[in-house]
Structure formats: structure tokens, C-alpha cells
């Protein structure tokens, strides 16, 4: 048992392969379903938003501080816009997360990109939510010409 034809032994290219880790769970399932469901809802919300802002009455020429301020005094539009913000941000972030997973092959790159993404998500959602709920439609000392009619009721 000593015949070694040549000293050079090439390591087997077929090193036992194993999936890096098992990552089972319903997370991806729910996010897959969420993408589709939120997509449908967003179509309604966005087109409703566009219709009200651009088509009704004088359309786009109507939009000014007063118009926006006026809308946000109504809880209906507050909820509408809040939903739109949250769904769009979740939908978009989840989409970009998927793209990062698909195209970034190195774990480090993936980690950095996703951190940036989630950071952007948190900032945008927090700011947006804050604005919707704390918006003051009738600031004191403002030029009355710019304010919505409700400020004078």
C-alpha cells in the first residue's frame, strides 16, 4: 500500500457542501403576501390621492399651503396619507431589500446597504408621521392670504 504515483495531490474540488444556515419561517411568506396586498391598496390610495389633488375642481392650480393644511385638518385625510406613507415605505423598503439580497453577493456589502436602507426608512417614516399629526394649519403670525379657510371660522 505504498505506491503513490505522484507526490502532488490535488484537493478534491467536491468539498462537502452545506447550506450556510437554515432560515425557515413565515417571514418571507408574509412579506411576499404583503407586497402584493399593499400593492393593491397603494394603487387605490395613490390614485385616490392623485385624483383629489389634481383632477377635482381647479386641479393642480389649487394646491398651496392652504390646500394641504385644509386637508390635514380632516382625520379622514390624515389616516389616508398616513396609510399611504406607511404602506409605500414598507412596500418600497421591502422591494429594495429584495433587490439587495438578489444582487449583493457579499455579506458585508449586503449588511451595509441594508443598514442604510433601514435607516432611511426609519427617518422618513418617523418624520412623515410626525408631520401628519403635528401639522399646524393655522400658524400664528402667518400671512392670512396663505391660510386655509378653516383658520377663519
Amino acid at each position: 500500500m505504498t505506491t503513490t504515483p505522484s507526490a502532488q495531490v490535488i484537493p478534491s474540488p467536491r468539498d462537502p457542501y452545506a447550506r450556510r444556515k437554515t432560515t425557515r419561517g413565515n417571514y418571507e411568506l408574509y412579506s411576499w403576501v404583503f407586497m402584493r396586498a399593499s400593492g393593491v391598496l397603494l394603487i387605490v390610495l395613490i390614485f385616490g390621492h392623485l385624483f383629489v389633488n389634481l383632477m377635482v375642481g381647479e386641479g393642480v392650480h389649487r394646491i398651496d399651503f392652504a390646500f394641504v393644511g385644509g386637508k390635514w385638518t380632516s382625520p379622514f385625510w390624515q389616516v389616508w396619507d398616513l396609510l399611504m406613507l406607511w404602506l409605500a415605505m414598507f412596500h418600497g423598503t421591502n422591494g429594495v431589500r429584495t433587490i439587495i439580497n438578489d444582487y449583493a453577493s457579499r455579506d458585508l456589502t449586503r449588511g451595509i446597504l441594508k443598514t442604510l436602507l433601514y435607516l432611511a426608512f426609519v427617518i422618513t417614516v418617523a418624520l412623515g408621521t410626525l408631520v401628519i399629526f403635528t401639522f399646524e394649519p393655522c400658524p400664528a403670525n402667518a400671512d392670512p392670504a396663505l391660510l386655509a379657510s378653516i383658520c377663519f371660522e
Binding site: 437554515t22 417571514y27 418571507e28
Partner: peptide
């Protein structure tokens, strides 16, 4: 098994 991050959802 296929309900995995690396399963059908990719």
C-alpha cells in the same frame, strides 16, 4: 423546508 429565506420566496 422550502418556506425558507432561500426557498421559493426568492
Amino acid at each position: 423546508i422550502l418556506n425558507d429565506k432561500e426557498g421559493v420566496w426568492r
